[in-house]
Amino acid sequence: MPTARTHPHTHAPLRRRALLTGALALTGALTLTACGSSDPADSGASGTTRTVKTAMGDVKVPKAPRRVVVLDTAELDSAITLGVRPVGATHVEAGSGFPDYLPKDKVSGIKDVGEMMNPNLEAIAALKPDLILTSKIRHAAKYDQLKAIAPTVMTETTGYPWKENFRLHAEALGKRAEAKKVITRYRAHAERVTQAIGGRAKAERTEVNVLRFIEGADIRLYGDQSYIATILKDVGLGRAPIAAKAKDGFSYDLSPEKIDLADTDVIFRSTYGDPKKSKETQTTRSGLWKNMRAVKTGNVHTVEDELWIQGIGYTAADKILDELRRDLTPKR
């Protein structure tokens, strides 16, 4: 069973903030009532609904939803990728606003409805959405409140099953044809990157690790059951043996004193939160770090956390493919 660790930007130290109180939840429900929507499932522009199979059972959604609210970065990426501008979206805890990798003109005008793990139900209800997208692992406890506002489509979890989740998002948004085109373009893009870095055999011989320095937590090395690992696999890149030790296939946690266990041909690293509090500064100044093979050969690449780890979608994946090509293509 997936846990909260499945998602790349979930960790306990940064989530110790006050959760939404029961009073606010009640207020949110009352706000909805004031909006005068007796049956949110029937609020689609076309006046008709479709049934979508979700992690919470069958849900009736508008045939052509026009006012969509998304409660995590994966759902935001899916919507933007499919040409849908949500009316509302949450932001991640360590930052504000929406991911910079998304086109500014595509996210302008979207209402920020609070921090991802603590969405503001009143703000969501005030937007009068006709569809809400999120995941069970994120907001199962708020499902009854959310579905009282609008039909709510939840995937089981986030991160690793992002491709399956994207298909469900597309189904809920009425964008299946567009989704097929996105998937086809992505596969072709991944193959071009494979060829650019030397072909399938060369890619398989190149072992890669992805590290994340996290404020208030251990250093995370991503295993094969993670979003970023699926992209590495699509390109055909090899993985260092330590990745196989990842708990539940998701991640293997390291202290600065054991960072040399992460050494391999190539390392991509990101930081979530304050570099000093995330042990990044301490680790990268250490002798262990400086003596690692990837460091000595200049094959450590610093990447943006919100793209490589938080993005979780095809728009993010395409940009990651471009960076893999840039960093791994042999220099001539």
Rank of each mutant, 00 (worst) to 15 (best):
V208R: 01
E323Y: 03
F250K: 13
L121K: 08
T230E: 08
D72I: 00
S226H: 07
D105C: 06
N291T: 00
T184F: 02
L211F: 04
F268R: 01
I242L: 14
R185M: 12
L131M: 09
H139T: 01
Y227Q: 03
D322S: 13
E156Y: 02
L261M: 14
K104N: 12
Y101M: 15
S278I: 10
R15S: 12
H9T: 07
P129V: 13
A316I: 09
A18G: 04
V182W: 08
N120M: 10
I231D: 08
L102C: 05
M154C: 03
T281V: 01
R66T: 04
T281H: 03
V113P: 00
T51I: 14
N165W: 02
V210K: 08
T315D: 12
D265C: 06
Y314Q: 09
T134G: 07
T21S: 15
T81Q: 10
R15P: 00
K290A: 12
W308H: 09
A126T: 05
K147G: 10
K181T: 04
D265I: 11
E204H: 01
A25G: 10
T6P: 00
E257S: 04
T90E: 08
A294V: 01
R50G: 08
D39L: 05
S37W: 10
T3R: 15
N291C: 03
A79S: 12
R205G: 13
D318V: 06
M292K: 06
V87Y: 00
A170R: 06
R326F: 03
K111F: 08
Y252L: 12
D58Y: 04
R212L: 05
F166Y: 04
T31M: 15
T271H: 02
R15D: 09
A29S: 12
A190Q: 08
K63T: 11
H189Q: 12
G311C: 05
V84I: 08
I137E: 02
K104I: 10
Q195A: 08
L261I: 00
H301F: 13
T194V: 07
A29G: 08
T264V: 11
D100I: 03
M1A: 14
E156R: 10
A150S: 02
N120Y: 00
T10R: 15
E115I: 15
P330V: 03
F98A: 12
